[in-house]
Simulated scan of single mutants.
Amino acid sequence: MTDNNQSAEDSPATSTDTLKASGLLAGLGATIPLVAAPMAGGPSTPALVLAAAQAGGLGLLAGGYKTPEQLAAQIAEVRAGVAAFGLNLFGVNLFAPNPVPIDKDAFVEYTEALRELAATYNLSLDEVDALEDDDEWEAKVDMLVNDPVPVVSFTFGLPPAKTVRRLQKAGSLVFQTVTNPDEGEQASAMGVDGLVVQSYKAGGHSGTLAPGTPVEQIPLADLLDRVRSRVHVPIWAAGGISTPAGVRDALAHRAEAAVVGSVLLRSPESGASKPYKAALADTHRTETVVTTAFSGRPARALRNAFVDRFHGVAPSGYPAVHHLTSPIRKAAAAANDPESINIWAGTGYRDAAEEPVADILRRLAGAN
């Protein structure tokens, strides 16, 4: 349930030179090997993606939980912004369908467990049914085929091979999030252009293709080596990277780039709520937990009262549990209450600073 979250001190850098982008990332126009992770639910704003491009990295818009129309509007905003820099440097992440069906009785029991908390925000859970949807998957894929973006990445599940080919034919590079060598081989066999290899230390939802099985706690460097021994496509490393030393270590293990998320959450460009940002800076919060309590799918969050109360009773079931708890979490955020929101955070969350995204990414690349 828990993990040691004390961020390691940076060891002396082997070089004071700024790290340079290479491979596919350089081909897209990036100058540093940093990717701003797609953080669904609000944190990954167009402003954050634009700031990543301005720094010389690549930012990924989070397509999850948005309607196709909302996503299209954000793509248009980012496209216009990067064009002003003379770039075409951004991407979009989608949740590929990989549902976790929920037991009807378990859903009813969890609804009852949440009822008292919901009432504190004047919310009723009467006549709430388990909502199983695919996040408007087909419509979003069609939109990205008809209006291509430089990079499309997938999380949660493997898309059909024909979807990968459609996006590539439209001109997009396609990346798949994986958490172990077997998943890497499956994705590589589908013809994706690259992999995002995510360690267990990542904040928010795990990208595992098997959410019912705990992700093995393998250090990122070892995980990169294991995946690299089985596949021959470019790899972007993710999960717990929050310092220049962490970036250099990932690149030393043949990752083309480092994907960072939690370290950007307190930036002014982040769309994380006020209580979310404050909780990340709260020195009394010292523990992250992998839990299904908020969404029915394993995700790493800072421990709070919601976790303490519901972690042990929450069922697996995605997206049904996500939809069930979403109104409570939104009401808590509006009430500035950090105890009933999902404070997604990787193990390096202590390195999150209240400074611009561009400054954070350049520092991680060794530029300042």
Results as ranks from 00 to 15, higher is better:
Asp3Ser: 13
Ser15His: 01
Thr18Ile: 13
Lys20Leu: 14
Leu25Gln: 04
Ala30Glu: 09
Ile32Lys: 01
Ala36Leu: 05
Ala36Thr: 08
Pro38Phe: 03
Pro43Phe: 02
Ser44Leu: 06
Thr45Gln: 03
Ala47Gln: 15
Ala53Arg: 04
Leu58Lys: 04
Leu60Arg: 02
Lys66His: 14
Pro68Ser: 07
Gln74Pro: 05
Gly81Asp: 07
Val82Tyr: 02
Phe85His: 10
Asn88Tyr: 06
Leu89Ser: 07
Leu89Ile: 09
Val92Thr: 12
Phe95Ile: 14
Ile102Tyr: 07
Ile102Gln: 08
Ile102Pro: 06
Ala118Thr: 00
Ala118Gly: 15
Ala119Lys: 04
Leu125His: 08
Glu127Ser: 11
Ala130Pro: 13
Asp133Gly: 02
Ala139Arg: 13
Asp142Pro: 05
Met143Tyr: 02
Asn146Gly: 10
Pro148Ser: 00
Pro150Ala: 12
Val152Tyr: 08
Phe154Asp: 09
Ala161Pro: 02
Lys162Phe: 01
Lys169Ile: 12
Lys169Glu: 13
Phe175Gly: 02
Thr177Met: 10
Asn180Glu: 03
Pro181Gly: 12
Asp182Ile: 14
Gln198Met: 08
Ser199Thr: 03
Gly204Pro: 07
Ser206Val: 03
Ala210Phe: 12
Thr213Val: 12
Thr213Met: 07
Pro219Phe: 04
Pro219Thr: 04
Leu220Gly: 09
Ala221Phe: 00
Ser229His: 10
Arg230His: 09
Val231Asp: 01
Ala237Gly: 01
Ala238Val: 06
Ile241Gln: 08
Arg248Ser: 05
Arg248Cys: 08
Asp249Val: 06
Ala250Cys: 15
Ala250Gly: 10
Leu251Thr: 11
Ala252Asp: 14
Ala252Thr: 07
Glu256His: 07
Ala257Ile: 01
Leu265Thr: 12
Leu265Arg: 11
Pro268Ile: 01
Glu269Pro: 01
Ser270Glu: 00
Pro275Val: 13
Pro275Cys: 09
Pro275Lys: 15
Tyr276Ile: 11
Lys277Ala: 03
Asp282Ile: 07
His284Gly: 14
Arg285Trp: 09
Phe294Gly: 10
Pro298Asp: 11
Pro298Glu: 09
Arg303Glu: 14
Phe306Gly: 13
Asp308His: 04
Arg309Gln: 14
Phe310Gly: 04
Gly312Met: 06
Val321Ala: 07
Thr325Tyr: 09
Pro327Ile: 14
Ile328Met: 10
Arg329Leu: 06
Arg329Gln: 12
Lys330Ile: 01
Asp337Tyr: 08
Pro338Gln: 09
Ile343Gln: 04
Ala345Phe: 00
Ala345Gln: 07
Asp351Phe: 06
Glu355Ser: 14
Pro356Arg: 11
Pro356Asp: 07
Val357Gln: 01
Arg362Phe: 03
Ala365Val: 02
Ala365Leu: 14
Ala367Val: 04
